[in-house]
Write a protein that binds this DNA or RNA. Structure first.
Lengths: 247, 247
DNA sequence: CGCCTTCTTGAATTCTGTCAACCCCTGTGG
DNA sequence: CCACAGGGGTTGACAGAATTCAAGAAGGCG
């Protein structure tokens, strides 16, 4: 069933954009292929010219960049419901690579088909633009994170973001899987693996955050938010405002 | 004359997107108002709901964020020809503020008028999306910069980017105005002002870069590129590929 | 002239990275 | 069944990078 593959993604778009039933059906009817991706596999290499966008069904993907010296920097995470590589629709040649951090499942959507839907339903185009805008805001917030926060704050902030993105954030006992190693976390936080290890220990000691074997436990959400200086407004969209403009 | 105000911006779009003469005229005919902005003025405050996009005609704008502790982080620079706040078209409520780093001139384009043009000319919409994609790629590269480069590399990289963005980069004696203080440069590079000062001295000593009173001199472009580990491909668009898809 | 901002400098401190070693667990092949 | 290799996590000692604090110099501007 296509609908199973796609509900997560149509739901995602619906969080910030109004879609008619017809538009939803058009999206759900897109010709797609489901693919299983091995852990540590490259889905899109830098410089590669792509013909498709993707939807994450299961697992965790990341956009990645490498410096000349060979050190790695993760630029963004993609969880179930996210649409990585959406920008390839307008800019087929990839600048940064797309990578699977664990065994994942994705749905591939050919550009040609998506372009047809966009042409027929301009509101779908708007919804995709908002999705890109959200990704852009997240990138900006990462700049703040890397530029102006300490190691512990950075890590705490990253976990706050992931809790909100996975929709698991709640006042008490937030739990979710985040299947990455400390080394990968270091590549996301712009830190060394050793220092990430020590920072995680400090957070554990303070009973603010546990991260073990790809599983996160946040006993007290507010405490983590306070450590991180987290304000999640950059992850949300003002749905009502868009409705006024596009509905 | 509208054309004078807008040529920079239509030219910018043309660097990555094909526009027919009719589409160019439609853009040039947009109703706009030109505004002078004082140095250090806030153009768009966070949380503000905007009704317009902008084009930078002269000067230098920046997107800015503040952390809880009050430290500042610059998220992006906008030079003449850039369109800051383009994302407000789809997401009117601003997440991050827009700020004038020096006395500047901008052109304001009402969303309503721009939406009309987009509706009539889908290719214009594509061009604007590419412009947003470029901004997004720059943000990703900044994440790499802040996460994985040393102070000197970061600063060198920033200057490389600005030289390319202003179109002044050349093999010998690149010169351009970059009207910011060392403190602002620190806010962009995620460093302290003191350390920026020392890093600039080091770059000056090595005869790689001079930055004095808002004026930049790069005697040897390749030398700066080598220090920075700069690869400017994230600033370019593969025009030919887009033509194949949209033209 | 005095005031303000920017730039500069030195010294001490804090933060983070590097290096090297070890532990634990898992999977593999003999 | 065991030996082994490999990856991930942990630890300690040390080195290096960047910040902070404090003060002074240089210039613009009322």
């Amino acid at each position: 069933m296509h609908s199973q593959r796609f509900h997560s993604f149509v739901d995602r778009l619906s969080t910030h954009s109004y879609l008619t039933e017809e538009e939803r059906q058009a999206l759900l009817a897109l010709p797609t292929s489901r693919e299983s991706i091995a852990s540590q596999a490259t889905i899109v290499a830098p410089e590669e010219v792509g013909q498709s966008c993707y939807v994450v069904v299961k697992g965790l993907l990341a956009r990645i960049s490498h410096t000349r010296e060979g050190s790695r920097q993760i630029l963004s995470f993609y969880v179930a419901g996210d649409m990585p590589h959406l920008q390839s629709l307008m800019h087929p040649r990839a600048i940064f690579g797309l990578f699977a951090l664990c065994e994942s499942e994705i749905v591939r959507i050919p550009h040609t088909a998506l372009r047809e839907v966009i042409k027929a339903y301009p509101r779908v185009s708007d919804a995709l633009s908002r999705e890109l805008g959200r990704e852009s805001n997240i990138a900006f917030e990462w700049i703040v994170n890397l530029g102006r926060r300490t190691a512990i704050e950075r890590i705490a902030h990253l976990f706050c973001e992931m809790a909100v993105k996975t929709g698991t954030a709640q006042e008490r006992d937030t739990r979710f899987t985040f299947p990455i190693t400390q080394t990968m976390l270091a590549d996301a936080a712009g830190l060394s693996a050793v220092h990430v290890n020590r920072s995680l220990q400090a957070l554990r000691k303070e009973k603010v955050l546990r991260f073990e074997q790809g599983y996160v436990e946040i006993p007290n959400w507010q405490a983590l938010v306070d450590v991180a200086g987290f304000d999640g407004s950059y992850l949300e969209s003002e749905r009502s405002l868009h409705f006024a403009n596009s509905g």
